Simulated scan of single mutants.
Amino acid sequence: MTASATWPDIAFTPWKESCAALHLYTQIVGKYRLAHTPWVNHSWHATLYVTPRGLTTGMVSDGAGGGAEIVFDFHDHAVIGMAADGGSARFALEPMSVAGFAQKFTALLQDIDATPQFDGRPNEIPDAIPFAEDVAERPYDADAVRRFHGALVQITRVFETFRTAFLGKVSPVHLFWGSFDMAVTRFSGRDAPLHPGGIPALPDDVTREAYSHEVSSAGFWPGGGGIDYPAFYSYAYPTPDAFSKAAVQPEAAFFHETLGEFVLPYDAVRQADDPDATLLAFLQSTYDAAASLGNWDRAKLDCHPGKPRQPRAI
């Protein structure tokens, strides 16, 4: 298999409308997890995780037997609910409205004796329509969704490798359904200045808790939000002086003045001779800029990447 085949083509424009629908579907499922999970720092309790077949909530402490899991299966194109008592239910991912998805998801939760209660309003989307009122028919491009999942599998693998080269506090590799991005975040260990907030349809206290400490964060968007192509990003909060002028790799990476972060088009990785090395160079060089310019204690925080079956040397 060639590198370009391993990293699938996920051009944004052809599946833009399907992507927008999938984003809202993940918000509905994510809000179920959010409603039934105790708060974890930086909203890590609310995220979704990539699996070999799609996305999962992981176990939510709710429902028959005390546990439920919701899965997006992007191979069979279904949403599946599983309960700790062995019960399960599913419905097909296909063209439908957001309201229709919410109705089917509520019925699925009832079928597995889970609690069908969650907030009915989208987050981080300007002028968003409540789920129950969003009755416009949405497309579902099954092939595009399958290729998107293939990209998430590759991205997760590289992000997890990058995550190992840090001894400090670091997030899981996870998908934030609010902004619909994969992310992995490193922390300096120091408090950050109060975040100004102002993210559309997101309470400022949530934003300020998420950015309570200094971070260098990297991630991936499928497109939208200021760019019309899939791309990797990297930013620091607070932003160190001269961060935007830092020399980063690879050559295709650049500082996006409007977004205030470094951006690397996904296709620059997909089409590279060594996609893994290209993406790792972006992740490492942008972290280097954030940590060095931000005066992080790198002697205590940085380490060699982890390897299978090799305990880290003390």
Score class of each variant (00 low, 15 high):
81 G>T: 14
216 S>W: 15
170 V>F: 06
107 A>R: 13
200 P>M: 09
142 A>Q: 13
207 T>P: 06
116 P>K: 09
119 D>K: 14
101 F>C: 01
109 L>G: 07
217 S>D: 06
184 V>Q: 01
83 A>N: 05
171 S>I: 04
108 L>E: 07
187 F>N: 04
184 V>D: 01
116 P>V: 13
189 G>K: 04
80 I>G: 04
159 F>S: 02
88 S>Q: 14
196 P>K: 00
108 L>K: 08
84 A>M: 12
97 S>K: 06
218 A>I: 14
113 D>K: 10
151 A>G: 03
152 L>P: 05
133 E>T: 02
90 R>C: 09
119 D>N: 14
143 D>S: 11
102 A>T: 02
191 D>A: 15
98 V>E: 03
148 F>P: 01
124 E>V: 13
103 Q>Y: 12
144 A>K: 03
144 A>V: 05
128 A>F: 01
211 Y>S: 02
149 H>F: 11
160 E>T: 07
132 A>F: 11
192 A>I: 13
144 A>E: 03
181 D>G: 13
146 R>C: 01
119 D>T: 14
113 D>G: 03
159 F>Q: 03
184 V>N: 01
178 G>R: 01
158 V>Q: 00
169 K>H: 10
183 A>R: 06
217 S>W: 08
162 F>E: 09
152 L>T: 07
210 A>R: 13
104 K>L: 15
171 S>R: 02
211 Y>P: 00
95 P>F: 13
119 D>P: 06
181 D>P: 08
140 Y>Q: 01
154 Q>W: 08
94 E>V: 12
173 V>D: 00
178 G>A: 05
89 A>N: 08
89 A>W: 12
156 T>R: 15
89 A>I: 12
101 F>W: 05
154 Q>N: 05
84 A>W: 14
165 A>M: 10
109 L>S: 08
